[in-house]
């Protein structure tokens, strides 16, 4: 087995595992009748989407985080900056995912409150029961 083949296998496994996680969580969102279970599946789904976004911006090791670690008291030289730009990973997906996680958490909290309200009004969080009790 050559190193290239092992590397290709690992790449494929990462992709397939993430696609599998998306499939499992989508199944949870669609098929599970319990609202709390749906929330758990929904957060797994958004987290997996975030992982994919970060995965796109990754650069093959040796790479560094997108934080410049040279001296800060003097202006950096252009050589230092070019070396940093050619070794760091993509910061744009990280910036987008950063806000997506916090905002997604706030929206999930709203969903949790609405679920709580559904329980107070209907006495159940099972979607099949809620449908029967409507009206």
């Amino acid at each position: 087995m050559s190193d290239v083949a092992i590397d290709l296998f690992l790449s494929n496994f990462i992709l397939i595992a993430i696609i599998g996680t998306i499939g499992v969580s989508l199944y949870g969102i669609v098929a599970k009748p319990n609202l709390i279970k749906k929330i758990i599946a929904l957060t797994i789904f958004t987290d997996t989407a975030n992982v994919i976004a970060i995965l796109i911006g990754f650069r093959r090791p040796p790479s560094v985080p997108p934080v410049f670690t040279g001296a800060l008291t003097r202006p950096p030289t252009l050589e230092e900056l070019r070396a940093f730009a050619s070794s760091a990973v993509d910061p744009l997906p990280q910036a987008l995912v950063l806000t997506a996680i916090v905002i997604g958490m706030a929206v999930n909290l709203l969903i949790i409150f609405i679920t709580l309200q559904v329980f107070r009004l209907y006495g159940t969080v099972d979607m099949r029961r809620v449908r029967e009790l409507r009206g």
Binding site: P65, A88, V89, Q94, V97, I101, V102
Partner: peptide, 9 residues
């Protein structure tokens, strides 16, 4: 994946 900001949040 070299994303310390994301880990922190």
């Amino acid at each position: 994946l070299r994303a310390p900001d994301i880990v922190l949040v």
